[in-house]
């Protein structure tokens, strides 16, 4: 004897099954990519391709709608239960994929939007009772997931910022190379809620090839090697090792940093800060909004500090 699932159990199944399938798809695609690429996998096991944040949430929404559509739920209920499903997805990513809270905070709007889209589109398709079309769309989504898993994912970006320091260039240069701990009050919201922020920079020499360390608030250290050291002109350094933690740092590599100084001829100096980074999360158009904002605020925090130190003794 079989019993008809109750409304509550259908809603719960819709959330649970969607989340189990998403874990299998994300975990499975990462495992498959790493296994097939073997020792050449490099960082691919750390790459979250756009499918993870677009195709998988769309599929999650479609799975949920499969369980929910016989209940004739209102649109507002679809949105509400999709929001619950997003929270469950974030919790499972925190537990099983070891993602950080801030990382999940950044990605959750994207996941929510695509889960709702998937659920509402699928509700309409299921109501059409056109199973050929439904199967075609499911097959297409699966093909995109597979194709995306094995596509090249290169996303290297540059963020550049400029400030004017009211001090001559020779006063500014020493603080570009190294600076004492930053005591500025934090006003960027992601730093306020716990994202690591730059605190201090030290060097072990004053020439190209010497080491430099950028120390962050939670003790993270970026080991750098100065590759261009031109006093009062340019400091360029490659990042040779950096921490990988569950927060944003696990999904981005800072490749190179650079300070360019220009004498303005009126006792002031223009300081240009450049950073090159590589993103391991896709779609780039969404995550670049965040990484640019974070990199810019790292720049501005350091450059404001350099400005204050340089102007102190003028």
């Amino acid at each position: 004897m079989t019993s008809t699932p109750t409304k509550q159990s259908r809603i719960v199944y819709g959330i649970l099954v969607a989340n189990i399938v998403s874990l299998l798809l994300v975990g499975g695609s990462k495992w498959l990519a790493t296994w097939l690429e073997g020792s050449h996998a490099g960082n691919s096991s750390g790459v979250f391709i756009f499918s993870s944040f677009i195709i998988v949430p769309l599929i999650m929404g479609a799975i949920s709608a499969w369980y929910w559509h016989p209940l004739k739920l209102k649109t507002i209920q679809y949105i509400g239960w999709s929001a619950v499903s997003t929270l469950v997805a974030c919790a499972t990513s925190f537990v099983f994929l070891k993602e950080g809270v801030i990382c999940l905070l950044i990605v959750s709007p994207l996941i929510l939007c695509f889960i709702i889209t998937g659920a509402l589109l699928a509700r309409m398709l299921y109501n059409r009772k056109n199973n050929t079309l439904n199967s075609s769309i499911a097959g297409l989504a699966f093909l995109v997931l597979i194709a995306d898993t094995f596509s090249s994912h290169e996303n290297i970006r540059l963020v550049s910022d400029t400030i004017i320091v009211n001090a001559p260039i020779e006063k500014v240069w020493p603080y570009v190379v190294e600076y004492k701990p930053i005591t500025l009050k934090e006003d960027y919201w992601l730093f306020q809620i716990g994202m690591p922020r730059p605190v201090q920079s030290t060097v072990d020499g004053y020439e190209a090839g010497a080491g430099r360390k950028c120390i962050f608030s939670n003790g993270y250290v970026f080991d750098e090697k100065m590759i261009v050291y031109k006093p009062n002109d340019e400091l360029t350094f490659d990042i040779i090792s950096q921490p990988h933690d569950p927060e944003i740092m696990g999904h981005i590599d800072i490749l190179r940093g650079q300070f360019l100084l220009k004498d303005n001829g009126d006792g002031t100096t223009t300081v240009i800060g450049n950073s090159w980074y590589k993103l391991y999360v896709f779609p780039g158009w969404y995550f670049n909004l965040w990484s640019e904002s974070i990199t810019r605020n790292v720049h501005l925090r350091v450059m404001e500090h350099i400005k204050i130190l340089s102007e102190e003794h003028v």
């Binding site: 649109t75 507002i76 695509f114 889209t117």
Partner: peptide
């Protein structure tokens, strides 16, 4: 376009509480 429409529906929830019910 469907993602944008889902986004509009989420915004509508805050701007016009009953709008989605009217459309239903």
């Amino acid at each position: 376009p469907h993602v944008f429409d889902a986004f509009l529906k989420m915004i509508s929830l805050f701007q016009h509480k009953h709008l989605l019910d009217y459309v239903d």
